[in-house]
Design a protein around this nucleic acid. Structure first.
Length: 441
RNA sequence: CGGGGCGUGGCGCAGUCUGGCUAGCGCGCAUGUUUUGGGUACAUGAGGCCCCCGGUUCGAAUCCGGGCGCCCCGACCA
């Protein structure tokens, strides 16, 4: 993509309405524009990030056998009246009437709908287990939206729902999802710690919040440093091997990790000083086992081998996709702008042409652009060097390829790593390899 | 929902208290010159329902009434 003809409006001034870094940077880097309180339009760069995150989430869900569907944003109130949540949900739920005066709502979540859908289709225990998910916009009419997409009213979320024959199988599914989440977040390039969450009236230890570490996070977190060393992606765990999953879960939960509400001083004190990590975090996902709550209230059952009704045990598993964009920026930026993890950056690299009227510069840039025209952003604008650098830093491209008349005559360019600021001069032909083989230490 | 604040070219603001020249300033935008590796300098220019409706007045961005929108603090939340 060429910057000169793109819809990537960066702004120099700090927008007055934005209070926190991620919100300011998202507006300044041209990722989003607000259209109403807590509601945002996603511009090309922002949409690319959203899609990159979604794609990783999708791959890791598919990897554990979850199947993608797409449920609508608007739901009939009927199902919610059946489950009893229509009245319970309160003013957070956006209620709408159609022309026939039929009550509709903009879905804040999809347990009712998926349970009903499941019930229409699955009739026998032989068809279990099932894990279904979708990535869809939701709406919760927050009392006070704030912090940009971190606490918007409309938000993009991956929500998965599982159906198992009994508790023991449901637990296995829960473990699978835990593994999938750990892998997902690692691929997203962020440090996320699962922490025991409140399970409400259901009890047990089967709900975890996934917290991304960021200094401006909403809650304080305490965890064992050993957690940081885990490499989930390179752990060869077969997601069909129940024993391996159970072991993994044991291993994960043996590490201490808690938010300030659940912080246990006595357990904390047993951890060696050197391994104690304290910080702040933002919740970006939650997994939850809730048993037969909906299948029973909505009378959705399958027939068991003995011919009797069985109410499947369910779990639900959310990842706040749009919230992650803000949360990742909170945990990865500096005073100049965003620092995107490679895996989700809107563009892999930005080619900065400092000599748009210089033949050598132009031809080198064109050549570099061909390495990956879709994912290399080419700053071909006739602008000052300073503003190009400032924009590239602001937008947070992992790589900047700087092409100036000085070195272009020697067929050399400068490559800058956004994250570290390290720069290296390379022959034009070396750039593609250098970037694709680069490893962060 | 309680408390506070704001609404004036695309963005950030002044002007409002104390009504009155042609509604200003910085940034951005356009054109030209200049500059050319970290937001250059100068010149010229375009761009305004002063949030909306009603009222007071010879006259309203400014005063009064009503409405809408947005932001901040709190309680709440993925």
């Amino acid at each position: 993509m060429r910057l000169s003809s793109s819809f990537l409006p960066t702004i120099k001034e700090i927008p007055s309405e934005a209070q926190i870094a991620s919100h300011r940077l998202m507006l300044r880097a041209g990722l989003i524009r607000q259209t109403a309180s807590g509601i945002y339009a996603w511009l090309p760069a922002g949409l690319r990030v959203l899609r990159n995150i979604s794609e990783i989430v999708r791959q890791e869900q598919n990897a554990i056998g979850a199947q993608e569907i797409l449920m609508p944003t608007l739901q009939s109130s009927d199902l919610w009246k059946k489950s009893g949540r229509y009245d319970a949900y309160g003013p957070e739920m956006l209620r709408i009437q159609d022309r026939h005066k039929h009550d509709l709502l903009y879905g804040p979540t999809n347990e009712e709908m998926i349970t009903d859908l499941f019930g229409q289709i699955v009739k026998s225990y032989k068809e279990l287990p099932q894990i279904l998910y979708h990535i869809q916009w939701k709406f919760r009419d927050e009392i006070r939206p704030r912090f940009g997409v971190m606490r918007g009213r409309e938000f993009l979320m991956k929500d998965a729902y599982s159906f198992d024959i009994d508790y023991d199988k449901a637990v296995i599914t829960y473990y699978k999802m835990m593994l999938s989440y750990l892998r997902t977040f690692q691929r997203l390039g962020v440090k996320v710690i699962p922490m025991l969450a409140d399970t409400g009236p259901i009890g047990g230890d089967l709900s975890h919040e996934f917290i991304i570490l960021a200094p401006t996070g909403e809650s304080g977190v305490f965890f064992d440093a050993d957690f940081e060393e885990q490499d989930w992606l390179n752990m060869q765990i077969d997601s069909e091997d129940e024993k391996a999953l159970a072991n993994l879960f044991k291993q994960i939960t043996q590490f201490y990790a808690a938010t300030d509400e659940k912080h246990d001083k006595s357990r904390w004190d047993q951890i060696p000083q050197a391994r104690r990590r304290e910080g702040r975090g933002i919740e970006v996902g939650q997994i939850f086992y809730f048993g037969t709550k909906y299948t029973q209230s909505m009378d959705i059952a399958v027939i068991g081998s003995d011919g009797n009704k069985i109410y499947p045990h369910m779990g639900s598993y959310g990842i706040g996709v749009s919230r992650l964009v803000g949360a990742i920026i909170e945990s990865s930026h500096d005073e100049n702008g965003i620092i995107w993890p490679d895996s989700i950056a809107p563009f892999k690299a930005c080619i900065i042409n400092l000599g748009v009227k210089d033949e050598a510069c132009v031809s080198i840039c064109e050549k570099l652009h061909q390495i990956d025209p879709e994912n290399f952003l080419y700053d071909d604008r006739d602008e000052r060097a300073g503003s190009k650098f400032a924009d590239a830093d602001l937008m947070g491209h992992p790589w900047q390829i700087i092409v100036g008349p000085r070195s272009a005559s020697k067929n050399k360019v400068e490559v800058k790593r956004r994250k570290t600021g390290e720069r290296i001069e390379l022959d034009v032909e070396e750039v593609a390899n250098y970037i694709s083989n680069y490893n962060d230490r």
